[in-house]
Design a protein around this nucleic acid. Sequence first.
DNA 1: TCCCAGGTACTTACGCTGTAAGTCAAGGGA
DNA 2: TCCCTTGACTTACAGCGTAAGTACCTGGGA
Lengths: 212, 212
Amino acid sequence: MEPRDKVTREKVLAAALTLVEENGIEGLSMRKLAAAVGVEAMSLYNHVPNKDAVIDGVAELVIQRMVLPEPAGDWKADLRALADAFRSSAISHPHAARLLLTRQLVSGGSLAASDAALAALRRAGFSASEAVHALRAVLAFLVGTVLREVESTPAFDGSDLSAVARRRADLSADAFPSLAESAPFLASCDHEREYTYGLDLLLSALESRLNR
Amino acid sequence: MEPRDKVTREKVLAAALTLVEENGIEGLSMRKLAAAVGVEAMSLYNHVPNKDAVIDGVAELVIQRMVLPEPAGDWKADLRALADAFRSSAISHPHAARLLLTRQLVSGGSLAASDAALAALRRAGFSASEAVHALRAVLAFLVGTVLREVESTPAFDGSDLSAVARRRADLSADAFPSLAESAPFLASCDHEREYTYGLDLLLSALESRLNR
DNA sequence: TCCCAGGTACTTACGCTGTAAGTCAAGGGA
DNA sequence: TCCCTTGACTTACAGCGTAAGTACCTGGGA
């Protein structure tokens, strides 16, 4: 009855995910991962071809944990719900989300979400072709915003402050008047709000394109 | 007259950029970089604090090479020109662009571009506050699209083909009808066109928000 | 002229990385 | 019973970033 603690690919990936979330992507090494599953480094290679596969697996794990919302009929609300789901699952694993956003993976996990988004767009009345364009536009925005959001929480070392201070110094030398003018709004960033703003922009543009 | 070949921070960063473009980011090591400059690894530390600073420097180098377009009066055309300039300079250094897009850097190099974009938005009639939101939305989309574009050119190893084939297999099992329906349009991606489509979407939404 | 201070480059070394290669014990099918 | 697969182990190698110490060369003050 001791096969209970047998190493499996799933256990390796789960351990890798927690390791990444605790120590960042840099903190993931095959030796540390092996130690986390209670084994020597080289034993991992019985379950996983190499480190890159581990990283891909971690990224897929995050996607798979995304819970898809039930379609409600209103295509805009449905797209928004899908985007929300994507964003939430990314934000709940900020370090691993970097992987997901940075590498494009042809993972099976994201297929269901893409299908749901395309279904909503088709229901709205877009052609199969334009639905793809719309999906790609929304997805690009989504990746960009979420990336900014997860990157602006860099395990808070105090270096940010000096950087901001330096930026301010550059601004006060008003070679950049428009920048200086907007400085108070640039200084802080409410990610939730920026996300909503941009998504609204895209959805309303899609809607008016539909009525054209 | 032999100070001609003295090592400088600039030469180090320039060599790092070409190294990154030739071999990818993984191919950049302090030893190889030193060899490229004609020096031993540790000598680099006389000009650069550590490897991270080298990477930041490479990213800034790419931004600095971006040529800003002259403002022409039409705010939409101006924003489009700025976006084009950003995209072009990123695409011309695909590997280094990953760095630029992935890390958020408070570099001085991007200040001029941000200022120009904000100026165009202010000229259009946006408030200083909303101009920032608009800029962030466009920038998020820009980062997302360009990231997808530079990542889909992964020094062409043939593994892409098998991945696409696998995706097709998943599709034919029509658990995802909308996906299957759009499969022919998903199979290929004209990056230029997707970029234009999304940017048009955002700009038209901004315009109608302005007239509201 | 001499001398020396400072900066540049070099050498050595440490601990870490991913992984190729070979060994060995346990368990299940013939 | 034997054998053969499977998974874990050990050893080893080449490469990494960089801390620490050393040697040289060059320009300026005495």
